[in-house]
Design a binder for these strands. Structure first.
Lengths: 115, 115
DNA sequence: CAGCATCCGTTGGGATACTG
DNA sequence: CAGTATCCCAACGGATGCTG
C-alpha cells in the first residue's frame, strides 16, 4: 500500500532538485538545447545542470536528442509523460509569485506602522 | 522583476523540506496536535518535525495554539494562507501516486519480456 | 507532551579543469 | 558545444539527551 506520505515523497524526489522545476517549466514551453537552457536560467552552474538533466532523463521526463556532429548539439524536450507535470509546474510558479507579492505587501505594511 | 525561475525557488524553499508537504497535507484534512502528527507520519524524526513546524509557522502557513497546561498541548492548523496550497498539495500527492503506478507497470512489463 | 541545544553524517549543489 | 571527472563545502536531516 502507498500512503499519501510516500506519494508526496516520490513527487518531491523528482521535482525538488534546486533547479529541476525551473528546467521543466522552460521545457514545457519549448524544447531547448543545453546552451539555451543555460541562457534562460543563467545562474545555474554548468555541472549542476548536467546532473539535473541526467536525473530527469532517467526518471522518464525528458527526451535527449543528440546530433553526432562536431560541435555536438543536444536538444532536450519533455516526454509525453513529462507533460503530465505541466499543470503542477504552473501552479508552483504561480504560488511562488503570489507568495512574493504577499511578502512585499506585509513588509510595506510594517513600514507604514513605523512612520 | 521576478522571473519564473525565482518564483519556483520560493515555492520549493517552502514546500520541499523532506516532510513538509506531507505535514501540510495532513493538516489540510484537520488540525492536529504534535503527537498526532507523529502518529500519522510515524517515520518522521522528533527533531525534524519540530524544525519543519517552526519553519512552516514562520512562513505563515501554520497556526500554533498552545494550552498552557501541564502536560502542554499544542495544536497545529493551517492558516487561511496555508490553505492556498491545498490544491497544489493534492496534485503533488496524486502525481506521486500515478508515478508509482507507472513505475510498477513498467517493471511488470519487463518481467513479461523476460518470461 | 512538546520543545530546545548540540552534535554528526550524508548529500547534493557547486567550482574547476580536462576531453571529443 | 556538451559532457566527464574530481573535489569541496554548506545545509539539512536526523540522533541523543535534557528541560518545564
Amino acid at each position: 500500500m502507498n500512503s499519501s506520505v510516500d506519494n508526496m515523497k516520490t513527487t518531491l524526489d523528482i521535482v525538488c532538485g534546486k533547479w529541476k522545476a525551473a528546467i521543466l517549466l522552460e521545457l514545457v514551453e519549448q524544447p531547448l538545447r543545453f546552451s539555451e537552457i543555460k541562457r534562460v536560467i543563467p545562474r545555474i552552474p554548468h555541472q549542476t545542470l548536467i546532473k539535473h538533466l541526467k536525473e530527469l532523463e532517467e526518471d522518464g521526463l525528458l527526451n535527449k536528442e543528440v546530433s553526432e556532429d562536431i560541435p555536438p548539439k543536444v536538444k532536450y524536450s519533455l516526454t509525453e509523460y513529462g507533460y503530465s507535470l505541466e499543470s503542477l509546474l504552473h501552479r508552483m510558479e504561480e504560488w511562488g509569485k503570489n507568495h512574493e507579492l504577499r511578502r512585499k505587501q506585509m513588509l510595506s505594511e510594517q513600514n507604514e506602522r513605523v512612520l
